[in-house]
Structure formats: structure tokens, C-alpha cells
């Protein structure tokens, strides 16, 4: 049995990019929301559930995504799993957000 995608210890890989770009606002928000959803008083899901959601991403998504991008997809999946949001309302809102940017070019 081969290792799952996240289990990458010992796998061949190239040189380490040691640059430290500043964390973007989007990344900060994902980090903050994930913490607030996970911790008391909300406690919607555990740290282990969050890790499992990240590890369950399709291999091409996992490997092709930035770190907090994976968190964002995992957060979406966990919010649907826990019944906080539905796939349909997320899809609708995502389309609306994209439409808004196309027509207005900026957040409200």
C-alpha cells in the first residue's frame, strides 16, 4: 500500500525555498476562522477532524494548492459536514462574489 499524499516524509523533493513572504490577509482570515470554528465556545469540529479534512483532499488538489488554500477547502468541507452551510448556498454565494468582483472590481 502506498502512502497517502500528505504522508510525504522521505519522498524525493527539490531545494527548499527559504523565502518568507508576508502572510496575506486572505491567509490570515482563513487561519483565524479555522481557529474560531474549532475552539470553544463554538467547537464545531476537532483539530483531528480538520487534519482529516485536509488529508482527504484529492491528491491533485492537495499537491496543487497553497497551504492555506488547502485549509480553505477543508473548512468548506467541514462546514458542510457539520451542517452549518450547504453545498448549494456556498456555490450560490461563491458565484455572487465572483460576479460582484467582475462588475464592481472591489469588495463591498
Amino acid at each position: 500500500m502506498s502512502a497517502r499524499t500528505h504522508d510525504m516524509g522521505g519522498a524525493p523533493a527539490g531545494p527548499i525555498d527559504r523565502s518568507e513572504p508576508p502572510v496575506t490577509l486572505t491567509e490570515q482570515r482563513v487561519d483565524a476562522m479555522m481557529a474560531l470554528l474549532r475552539e470553544p465556545p463554538l467547537g464545531l469540529f476537532s483539530t483531528d477532524a480538520m487534519r482529516r479534512a485536509i488529508e482527504d483532499l484529492a491528491p491533485d488538489v492537495y499537491l496543487g494548492s497553497a497551504y492555506y488554500e488547502r485549509w480553505c477547502y477543508a473548512m468548506r468541507d467541514l462546514l458542510v459536514e457539520t451542517g452549518v452551510l450547504t453545498d448549494a448556498e456556498i456555490a450560490d454565494r461563491l458565484a455572487a462574489v465572483q460576479q460582484r468582483f467582475e462588475t464592481e472590481g472591489a469588495p463591498p
Binding site: T26, V30, M33, S65, M75, I90, A96, V97, Q98, F101
Partner: peptide, 16 residues
């Protein structure tokens, strides 16, 4: 946003 997932972050945050 420059990437698809950054729109998703906005959508999730607004809904929450």
C-alpha cells in the same frame, strides 16, 4: 482576489 480559493474565503466568511 487572484485565485479561485480567495473568492471561496470571501463567500464562506460572508455566510458565517
Amino acid at each position: 482576489p487572484g485565485h479561485e480559493w480567495e473568492f471561496l474565503e470571501i463567500a464562506l466568511r460572508e455566510l458565517l
